[in-house]
Amino acid sequence: MQFTINGRAFEADVDIRTSLLDLCREHLDLTGAKKGCDHGQCGACTMLINGRRVNSCLTLAVMHQEDEIITIEGVGDPQGLHPLQHAFVRHDAYQCGYCTPGQICSAIGMLDEIKKGWPSHVSADLSSPVFDDQEISERMSGNLCRCAAYTNVVDAIREVADSAANDRTADEKDKVMADEVMA
């Protein structure tokens, strides 16, 4: 079987029953994603498939040979941390760290869902969800943290989301100024 993971091509000769999680952990030496429950209940195995967050324990590797898969190893490394990784460190958003790779991959997918305007169960108006801590908690409910670092996880995600929003606002201001100069 052939795979594209973190932008790299991989080949592996694995049993047809192999989950995407086991493929990465047991055969490709990508051990960042963790096996918590192996039943899709804890979120520790979360990866991004074509940019969407999924439970890698609940899908067969063989079904994803045409997809772009990103694991935590593809999100950042010690020399170049992803903003969410920085934020998790800054906010102490973990204790044992076992759920953290899944939390971060899930948060990346979740922030993209918000960017697309997707509503959630707690959105009062499904057409224009407001982004607040309650929304983060609801949208991250598929990621358990048995150390219960939840409040700090929310703070870390909130910081990155706010700074992305500020960057967008700054970009828009720049664009307005550029337009004015052009005019």
């Binding site: 899709g40 979120g43 979360t46 969407r52 967050r53 999924v54 439970n55 609940l58 899908t59 899930s106 997918g109 979740m110 869902e113 509503p119 959630s120 169960h121 959105s123 499904l126 949208r139 991250m140 409910s141 598929g142 990621n143």
Partner: peptide
């Protein structure tokens, strides 16, 4: 929409 959003998690709804 409300029923779907009340079910499962973000990861599961994606799949």
């Amino acid at each position: 929409s409300r029923a779907l959003l009340a079910g499962a998690s973000g990861q599961l709804r994606n799949k």
